[in-house]
């Protein structure tokens, strides 16, 4: 037993695995923040959230690869495009199912999911498209190498999460966004136009999805169904952290990412996801409201 522990746990590869988990956690934290924010403020779960990321990945692909726009401006365009998409999605679909039965909201946003997948298939085909940007990797210690694109993704995601933290804790708009998730009805007394706040939150949530799209496009190819590979994980992260609980979602993102990484270390990569799903299911049995649920 000790030998096994010595061999596996005290190895540099395990440290590398933990670091990779940490890096992946950054992007997951970014995505769960966007989804949680939307849920907390608007009280609708955007089942199609990962599909916004998918469209974002196509946006940056077309800007950078097809139109030859440099990476940074392409990323800015991508963020703005998906923010606009989030806003439009709210105005033409979500605004009409507010306060309706959750099943109707689920059907509406689920419908958008399939719609966006189909549109992407029609417009772009099913082939895997690559941004073709390779940042290579760098050597952390003698034996530990980290992928630069993952590292950049982590840094940018962490900066965005920190920026959101300051926005939410220091600005009037941020205070109102947190307040409305606690008491919707009285916001009118505070002079808050809820519909305007919904629109802005949708745009912010979209913008975060667009940013995540840029970061993911550095590491993964884009295809119409790429959302499947991280959408469900983001949902589980949010549920595990307590839907709408921003801090809970943040912590759960790293727990999840580490579980995936560690599972992948001891067995195949896919087993990492299996391990994370199992932990998720067990958590749901023990604490159906999520790990960090608040007393209501």
């Amino acid at each position: 037993m000790m030998e096994i522990i010595n061999e596996y746990v005290f190895s540099v590869f395990f440290v590398e695995t933990l670091l990779n988990g940490l890096l992946y956690g950054g992007v997951l934290a970014l995505l769960s923040l966007g989804l949680n924010l939307i849920f907390g403020v608007i009280d609708v779960v955007w089942i199609c959230y990962a599909e916004l990321v998918m469209l974002g990945m196509y946006t940056i692909y077309f800007m950078h690869v097809r139109y030859g726009i440099p990476l940074i401006p392409s990323s800015v365009i991508c963020v703005l495009m998906v923010a606009l998409l989030g806003y439009v999605l709210h105005r033409i679909i979500i605004a009409h199912v507010l306060g309706k039965a959750p099943i109707n909201q689920l059907l509406a946003t689920g419908g958008v999911l399939f719609f966006l997948q189909s549109i992407a298939t029609l417009m772009f085909g099913v082939e895997f498209l690559s941004l073709g940007v390779s940042l290579g990797s760098f050597q952390l210690t003698e034996d530990i190498y980290l992928s630069k694109s993952q590292f950049v993704a982590f840094i940018v995601a962490a900066a965005a999460v920190a920026g959101m933290y300051f926005f939410l804790s220091r600005s009037y708009m941020g205070a109102a966004i947190r307040a409305i998730s606690q008491d919707r009805e009285i916001m009118i007394l505070m002079g808050v136009d809820a519909n305007r706040l919904y629109g802005i939150t949708s745009a912010i949530g979209g913008g975060l999805a667009g940013l995540a799209a840029c970061l993911l496009a550095l590491q993964f190819d884009v295809h119409p169904f790429v959302g499947i590979s991280f959408g469900p994980i983001v949902f589980m992260v949010c549920v595990m952290g307590g839907l709408g609980n921003l801090v809970g979602g943040f912590i759960a993102a790293f727990v999840f990412a580490e579980l995936i990484a560690i599972g992948g270390y001891f067995a195949d990569l896919e087993w990492g996801t299996v391990l994370a799903f199992c932990v998720f299911v067990i958590t749901m049995f023990i604490r159906p409201e999520g790990l960090f649920a608040r007393k209501s």
């Binding site: 205070a175 947190r178 307040a179 606690q182 008491d183 505070m190 808050v192 608040r294």
Partner: peptide, 12 residues
């Protein structure tokens, strides 16, 4: 707003 501080409530 129960999960916000007194001063944040005043800010809203």
């Amino acid at each position: 707003f129960a999960r916000m501080s007194v001063e944040e409530n005043l800010r809203v």
